[in-house]
Design a protein around this nucleic acid. Structure first.
Lengths: 151, 151
DNA sequence: TTGTGACTGAGAATCGCTCTCGCTAGCTTG
DNA sequence: CAAGCTAGCGAGAGCGATTCTCAGTCACAA
């Protein structure tokens, strides 16, 4: 559902590598593995999910690397009311999207809304931000409920 | 900005009391104090904020009471990427609204969007939910950025 | 090959939050 | 009023996701 802007995976790695290098950081095997997993998932993943999908990842390194990747703007952290936070590729590496959040199992899936509506939303939010002297960075739209498998 | 549906505070307390009683729970001083603070704030408050505003509240009791109040549907818990979670009155006791979240200081303010747009949004989200076999409970729209005082 | 600085991973430490437990308080029945 | 029952209370212990520490590695440049 979410098509990477860099539509060949190698491009994605190039972008990640470049953004890290700009901060004097290296694009190591562990970091590449994380990006691969996130790119393949099309949904935000928690650390346990990442560790499970790639047993060679160490927990502490994964936490650290995700923080580094977030700082470099390659990855975005999502905190729902679930016990774990989740990570996805930064928005400029994917397509603008939103989340279906299952309040029963905590799982998250991506979805999009028609771009016309999205545009209207953006304009309305722009006005709201202006009214409040708020410098908007991005918006977040989640649909919370029960997923098909939990129903 | 957010006008309680029960526009006299006493009504609010009546509702809270009734919902608790329905679960064999009492509307005690500490619980009433929490509701008062939340009703007065017009923005979600964290536990530290609550404890600071009413020094007679005990931390452990406040955590417990907020969980109880949430279970009774009187209060709603919000987890942002901030270190603390925040609580506000349940949506049916206030007006449907959204949040301006300052990623610098973590503070949250309420805002609303035109009801026409809200309706459109609801219809679009309803379609999305249907497409995914998802039983939607509610949606959540946040504007993340930097507030006026942090700018 | 040597130096510099980032990376690694196992375990310790942190800290928001939850649980435990002895005690109090409100309500109901005798 | 007393007795019983159940919910609440609060201080501190406990829990668990996340972060920090630290002693080695590993890349890359000179």
């Amino acid at each position: 559902m979410v098509a990477p802007v860099a539509n060949r995976t190698t491009d994605l790695h190039d972008v990640a590598s470049t953004r890290l290098r700009a901060r004097d950081q290296r694009y190591t095997r562990g970091r590449r593995a994380i990006i691969d997993l996130l790119a393949r998932a099309n949904a935000p993943l928690s650390i346990p999910q990442l560790l499970e999908r790639d047993r060679s990842l160490a927990q502490s390194s994964t936490y650290r690397n995700l923080a580094v990747l977030e700082g470099a703007g390659v990855v975005h952290r999502i905190v729902s009311s679930d016990e774990f936070s989740r990570y996805e590729l930064a928005e400029d590496l994917t397509e603008h999207h939103h989340h279906l959040i299952c309040s029963s199992c905590g799982d998250v899936r991506d979805f999009t809304v028609p771009s016309a509506l999205e545009g209207e939303l953006d304009r309305a939010l722009g006005r709201v931000a202006g009214d409040h002297g708020f410098a908007a960075d991005h918006h977040r739209l989640d649909l919370v409920g029960t997923c098909a498998t939990c129903a």
